[in-house]
Protein backbone atom coordinates (compact mmCIF):
# COMPACT_ATOMS: atom_id res chain seq x y z
CA UNK A 1 0.00 0.00 0.00
CA UNK A 2 1.22 3.46 -0.74
CA UNK A 3 1.81 5.64 2.24
CA UNK A 4 0.30 9.10 2.24
CA UNK A 5 1.29 11.98 4.46
CA UNK A 6 -1.26 14.76 4.71
CA UNK A 7 -1.05 18.07 6.42
CA UNK A 8 -4.33 19.90 6.96
CA UNK A 9 -4.72 23.53 7.98
CA UNK A 10 -1.62 23.52 10.16
CA UNK A 11 -0.95 26.65 12.16
CA UNK A 12 2.02 27.33 14.36
CA UNK A 13 2.51 30.35 16.60
CA UNK A 14 5.65 31.19 18.50
CA UNK A 15 4.45 33.63 21.12
CA UNK A 16 2.91 36.39 18.99
CA UNK A 17 4.62 35.31 15.76
CA UNK A 18 2.48 33.34 13.32
CA UNK A 19 4.99 31.10 11.59
CA UNK A 20 2.32 29.01 9.83
CA UNK A 21 -1.17 30.31 9.18
CA UNK A 22 -2.99 27.27 7.89
CA UNK A 23 -1.01 25.16 5.44
CA UNK A 24 -2.32 22.02 3.77
CA UNK A 25 -0.46 19.60 1.53
CA UNK A 26 0.05 15.93 0.92
CA UNK A 27 2.96 13.71 -0.08
CA UNK A 28 2.56 10.17 -1.33
CA UNK A 29 5.22 7.48 -1.17
CA UNK A 30 7.27 7.54 -4.34
CA UNK A 31 6.44 11.15 -5.18
CA UNK A 32 8.69 14.15 -4.73
CA UNK A 33 7.08 17.39 -3.61
CA UNK A 34 9.13 20.56 -3.65
CA UNK A 35 8.47 23.18 -1.00
CA UNK A 36 9.75 26.64 -1.81
CA UNK A 37 9.28 30.11 -0.47
CA UNK A 38 11.30 33.14 0.62
CA UNK A 39 13.39 33.12 3.80
CA UNK A 40 11.24 33.11 6.90
CA UNK A 41 8.17 31.86 5.06
CA UNK A 42 7.79 28.92 7.44
CA UNK A 43 9.29 26.03 5.46
CA UNK A 44 11.54 24.69 8.17
CA UNK A 45 8.83 25.16 10.78
CA UNK A 46 6.50 23.05 8.64
CA UNK A 47 9.06 20.27 8.40
CA UNK A 48 9.59 20.41 12.15
CA UNK A 49 5.85 20.16 12.77
CA UNK A 50 5.53 17.14 10.50
CA UNK A 51 8.56 15.47 12.08
CA UNK A 52 7.12 15.93 15.55
CA UNK A 53 9.93 18.23 16.65
CA UNK A 54 7.38 21.03 17.14
CA UNK A 55 3.72 20.63 18.03
CA UNK A 56 1.28 22.53 15.79
CA UNK A 57 -0.89 25.22 17.40
CA UNK A 58 -3.83 23.98 15.31
CA UNK A 59 -4.49 21.66 12.40
CA UNK A 60 -3.60 18.02 11.85
CA UNK A 61 -0.86 15.91 10.38
CA UNK A 62 -1.88 12.40 9.38
CA UNK A 63 -0.10 9.40 7.97
CA UNK A 64 -2.47 7.05 6.15
CA UNK A 65 -5.31 8.65 8.06
CA UNK A 66 -3.67 8.27 11.44
CA UNK A 67 -3.05 11.43 13.48
CA UNK A 68 0.63 11.91 14.16
CA UNK A 69 0.81 15.57 15.15
CA UNK A 70 0.76 14.89 18.89
CA UNK A 71 3.41 12.18 18.76
CA UNK A 72 6.97 12.76 19.94
CA UNK A 73 9.64 12.94 17.24
CA UNK A 74 10.97 9.43 17.81
CA UNK A 75 7.50 7.91 17.30
CA UNK A 76 7.08 9.76 14.03
CA UNK A 77 10.34 8.24 12.81
CA UNK A 78 9.21 4.80 13.89
CA UNK A 79 6.13 5.25 11.72
CA UNK A 80 8.26 6.04 8.69
CA UNK A 81 8.90 9.77 8.39
CA UNK A 82 12.40 11.12 8.89
CA UNK A 83 13.88 14.59 8.56
CA UNK A 84 17.34 15.88 7.75
CA UNK A 85 18.72 18.91 9.52
CA UNK A 86 19.32 22.11 7.64
CA UNK A 87 22.69 22.34 9.34
CA UNK A 88 23.92 18.75 9.48
CA UNK A 89 23.89 17.34 12.99
CA UNK A 90 26.07 14.25 12.86
CA UNK A 91 27.15 12.55 16.08
CA UNK A 92 30.63 14.04 15.91
CA UNK A 93 32.29 11.53 18.19
CA UNK A 94 31.03 8.50 16.25
CA UNK A 95 32.34 7.12 12.98
CA UNK A 96 30.34 7.57 9.81
CA UNK A 97 29.29 3.92 9.92
CA UNK A 98 28.17 4.17 13.54
CA UNK A 99 26.15 7.27 12.67
CA UNK A 100 24.30 5.32 10.03
CA UNK A 101 24.15 2.17 12.18
CA UNK A 102 22.32 4.09 14.91
CA UNK A 103 19.70 5.10 12.37
CA UNK A 104 19.22 1.47 11.32
CA UNK A 105 19.05 0.18 14.90
CA UNK A 106 16.37 2.69 15.77
CA UNK A 107 14.47 4.43 12.98
CA UNK A 108 11.41 2.67 11.65
CA UNK A 109 13.00 -0.75 11.48
CA UNK A 110 13.78 -1.01 15.19
CA UNK A 111 16.13 -3.84 14.29
CA UNK A 112 17.71 -5.12 17.48
CA UNK A 113 20.44 -7.17 15.84
CA UNK A 114 23.62 -5.11 15.85
CA UNK A 115 25.51 -7.21 13.29
CA UNK A 116 22.65 -7.15 10.79
CA UNK A 117 22.16 -3.44 11.35
CA UNK A 118 25.75 -2.78 10.40
CA UNK A 119 25.44 -4.81 7.20
CA UNK A 120 22.52 -2.59 6.35
CA UNK A 121 24.52 0.50 7.30
CA UNK A 122 27.30 -0.57 4.94
CA UNK A 123 24.78 -0.95 2.15
CA UNK A 124 23.45 2.56 2.72
CA UNK A 125 26.98 3.97 2.88
CA UNK A 126 27.72 2.39 -0.53
CA UNK A 127 24.47 3.81 -1.92
CA UNK A 128 25.35 7.37 -0.99
CA UNK A 129 29.03 6.98 -1.77
CA UNK A 130 30.42 7.32 1.75
CA UNK A 131 31.88 3.83 2.06
CA UNK A 132 35.48 5.02 1.93
CA UNK A 133 34.75 7.23 4.96
CA UNK A 134 33.02 4.50 6.96
CA UNK A 135 35.71 4.49 9.65
CA UNK A 136 36.18 8.28 9.70
CA UNK A 137 34.90 10.18 12.72
CA UNK A 138 31.99 12.34 11.64
CA UNK A 139 33.83 15.31 13.15
CA UNK A 140 36.44 14.93 10.41
CA UNK A 141 34.03 14.87 7.47
CA UNK A 142 33.80 17.78 5.03
CA UNK A 143 30.62 19.84 4.92
CA UNK A 144 29.57 18.10 1.73
CA UNK A 145 30.11 14.66 3.21
CA UNK A 146 28.19 15.68 6.32
CA UNK A 147 25.26 16.49 4.07
CA UNK A 148 25.56 13.08 2.48
CA UNK A 149 25.63 11.58 5.95
CA UNK A 150 22.40 13.39 6.81
CA UNK A 151 20.83 11.82 3.75
CA UNK A 152 22.34 8.42 4.53
CA UNK A 153 20.91 8.51 8.06
CA UNK A 154 17.34 9.28 7.01
CA UNK A 155 17.50 6.57 4.38
CA UNK A 156 18.91 4.18 6.97
CA UNK A 157 15.95 4.79 9.25
CA UNK A 158 13.94 2.92 6.62
CA UNK A 159 11.52 5.80 6.31
CA UNK A 160 9.11 5.85 3.39
CA UNK A 161 8.72 9.61 3.42
CA UNK A 162 11.72 11.86 3.82
CA UNK A 163 11.69 15.49 4.83
CA UNK A 164 14.76 17.06 3.28
CA UNK A 165 15.80 20.50 4.50
CA UNK A 166 18.11 22.21 2.00
CA UNK A 167 20.27 19.22 1.24
CA UNK A 168 21.45 20.87 -1.99
CA UNK A 169 22.39 24.23 -0.51
CA UNK A 170 25.94 25.52 -0.69
CA UNK A 171 27.20 23.14 -3.37
CA UNK A 172 29.26 24.15 -6.39
CA UNK A 173 27.60 23.58 -9.81
CA UNK A 174 29.54 20.33 -10.28
CA UNK A 175 28.71 19.08 -6.80
CA UNK A 176 25.08 20.02 -7.35
CA UNK A 177 24.90 18.00 -10.56
CA UNK A 178 26.45 15.03 -8.78
CA UNK A 179 24.14 15.37 -5.77
CA UNK A 180 21.05 15.58 -7.97
CA UNK A 181 22.16 12.49 -9.87
CA UNK A 182 22.65 10.69 -6.56
CA UNK A 183 19.21 11.74 -5.36
CA UNK A 184 17.52 10.46 -8.52
CA UNK A 185 19.35 7.14 -8.28
CA UNK A 186 18.45 6.70 -4.62
CA UNK A 187 14.84 7.58 -5.27
CA UNK A 188 14.64 5.02 -8.10
CA UNK A 189 16.30 2.35 -6.00
CA UNK A 190 14.32 2.84 -2.80
CA UNK A 191 11.14 4.49 -3.99
CA UNK A 192 10.71 6.84 -1.06
CA UNK A 193 8.53 9.92 -1.19
CA UNK A 194 9.97 13.24 -0.16
CA UNK A 195 9.05 16.75 0.83
CA UNK A 196 12.00 18.79 -0.33
CA UNK A 197 12.61 22.27 1.07
CA UNK A 198 15.06 23.95 -1.24
CA UNK A 199 16.39 27.32 -2.30
CA UNK A 200 18.31 25.94 -5.24
CA UNK A 201 15.63 26.37 -7.91
CA UNK A 202 17.35 24.15 -10.43
CA UNK A 203 17.18 21.22 -8.06
CA UNK A 204 13.55 21.76 -7.09
CA UNK A 205 12.34 22.25 -10.62
CA UNK A 206 14.19 19.22 -11.96
CA UNK A 207 13.47 16.74 -9.19
CA UNK A 208 9.95 17.56 -8.03
CA UNK A 209 6.77 16.08 -9.38
CA UNK A 210 4.86 18.92 -7.83
CA UNK A 211 5.86 22.20 -6.20
CA UNK A 212 4.22 24.08 -3.35
CA UNK A 213 5.04 27.70 -2.66
CA UNK A 214 4.50 29.20 0.77
CA UNK A 215 4.91 32.79 1.86
CA UNK A 216 4.40 34.27 5.31
CA UNK A 217 3.03 31.00 6.58
CA UNK A 218 0.44 30.54 3.81
CA UNK A 219 0.36 28.40 0.72
CA UNK A 220 0.25 30.74 -2.29
CA UNK A 221 0.65 28.31 -5.17
CA UNK A 222 0.78 24.65 -6.04
CA UNK A 223 1.21 22.70 -9.23
CA UNK A 224 3.72 21.26 -11.69
CA UNK A 225 7.10 22.96 -11.27
CA UNK A 226 7.35 24.93 -14.51
CA UNK A 227 3.82 26.28 -14.17
CA UNK A 228 4.12 27.35 -10.56
CA UNK A 229 7.17 29.53 -11.00
CA UNK A 230 5.39 31.62 -13.65
CA UNK A 231 2.51 32.57 -11.38
CA UNK A 232 2.52 36.28 -10.48
CA UNK A 233 1.95 35.63 -6.78
CA UNK A 234 5.08 33.52 -6.67
CA UNK A 235 7.22 36.04 -8.50
CA UNK A 236 5.88 38.72 -6.21
CA UNK A 237 6.70 36.77 -3.10
CA UNK A 238 10.25 36.25 -4.26
CA UNK A 239 11.08 39.48 -6.03
CA UNK A 240 8.53 42.01 -4.82
CA UNK A 241 5.51 43.64 -6.46
CA UNK A 242 7.46 45.63 -9.06
CA UNK A 243 9.07 42.59 -10.56
CA UNK A 244 5.76 40.78 -10.67
CA UNK A 245 4.17 43.65 -12.61
CA UNK A 246 7.09 43.80 -15.01
CA UNK A 247 6.92 40.09 -15.67
CA UNK A 248 3.26 40.00 -16.60
Amino acid sequence: MTMVLSVAEVRKDFGGVHALRGVSLSVAEGRIVGLIGPNGSGKTTLLNVIAGVEKPTAGTVTLDGRRIDRLPAHRVVELGIAKTHQIPKPFLGLTTRDNVGVAVLYGSRQDRDVARAFDEANWVLRLVGLERHAETLAANLTVQDRKRLELARVIATGSRILLLDEVFAGLSPDELREAMGLFTRLQKEIGFGALVVEHVMRAVLTLSDRVIVIDEGRKIAEGPPQQVVRQPAVIEAYLGREAARAAT
Binding site: K89, L94, Y106
Partner: peptide
Protein backbone atom coordinates in the same frame (compact mmCIF):
# COMPACT_ATOMS: atom_id res chain seq x y z
CA UNK B 1 21.78 -1.58 20.54
CA UNK B 2 21.20 0.47 23.70
CA UNK B 3 24.83 1.52 23.69
CA UNK B 4 24.50 3.00 20.22
CA UNK B 5 21.35 4.82 21.28
CA UNK B 6 23.13 6.22 24.33
CA UNK B 7 26.16 7.34 22.35
CA UNK B 8 23.80 9.11 19.98
CA UNK B 9 22.08 10.85 22.89
CA UNK B 10 25.44 11.85 24.32
CA UNK B 11 26.48 13.20 20.94
CA UNK B 12 23.35 15.18 20.11
CA UNK B 13 20.11 14.43 21.87
CA UNK B 14 17.87 16.29 19.43
CA UNK B 15 19.40 14.59 16.44
CA UNK B 16 19.04 11.25 18.23
CA UNK B 17 15.32 11.81 18.65
CA UNK B 18 14.90 12.55 14.96
CA UNK B 19 16.43 9.16 14.20
CA UNK B 20 13.82 7.35 16.25
CA UNK B 21 15.57 7.08 19.60
Amino acid sequence: RIGYGLRAIKGDEDAAKTLGI
